[in-house]
Amino acid sequence: MHESAAQRAVHDAGRATAHTKRATRRTLRPSFPTHLIEAGTNIRTIQTLLGHKDVRTTMIYTHIVDRSPLGVISSLDH
Rank of each mutant, 00 (worst) to 15 (best):
M1H: 03
H2S: 10
H2M: 05
H2E: 04
E3Y: 02
S4H: 06
S4N: 09
S4W: 03
A6L: 09
R8T: 01
R8G: 02
V10H: 02
V10K: 00
D12Y: 06
D12S: 07
D12F: 03
A13L: 09
G14T: 04
G14N: 01
R15P: 01
A18V: 02
A18H: 02
H19P: 01
T20W: 09
T20P: 04
K21R: 15
K21V: 12
K21F: 13
K21G: 11
A23W: 11
T24C: 06
T24F: 02
R25V: 07
R26H: 15
R26W: 10
R26Q: 14
T27F: 03
T27C: 08
L28V: 10
L28S: 08
L28I: 10
L28F: 12
L28N: 07
R29I: 12
P30F: 10
P30H: 08
P30K: 06
S31K: 03
S31E: 09
S31M: 13
F32D: 05
F32W: 12
P33K: 04
T34I: 06
T34K: 00
H35D: 07
H35R: 15
L36M: 11
L36A: 06
L36I: 00
L36C: 04
I37G: 00
E38K: 07
E38D: 15
A39L: 07
G40E: 00
G40T: 03
T41F: 00
T41S: 02
T41M: 06
T41E: 04
N42C: 07
I43S: 03
R44L: 12
Q47S: 07
T48P: 02
T48C: 01
L50Y: 05
L50C: 04
G51T: 07
G51W: 09
G51D: 06
H52W: 01
H52E: 08
H52C: 08
K53M: 08
D54H: 13
V55M: 05
R56Q: 13
T57F: 02
I60R: 14
Y61F: 10
T62C: 13
T62S: 02
H63Q: 12
I64L: 12
I64D: 12
I64K: 14
V65Y: 09
D66P: 14
D66H: 15
R67P: 05
R67G: 14
R67H: 15
R67Q: 14
R67L: 15
S68F: 10
S68I: 07
S68M: 08
P69E: 13
P69V: 12
L70V: 09
G71P: 09
G71C: 10
V72P: 01
V72E: 14
I73P: 00
S74N: 13
S74W: 08
S75W: 03
S75D: 14
L76P: 01
L76D: 15
H78R: 11
H78Q: 10
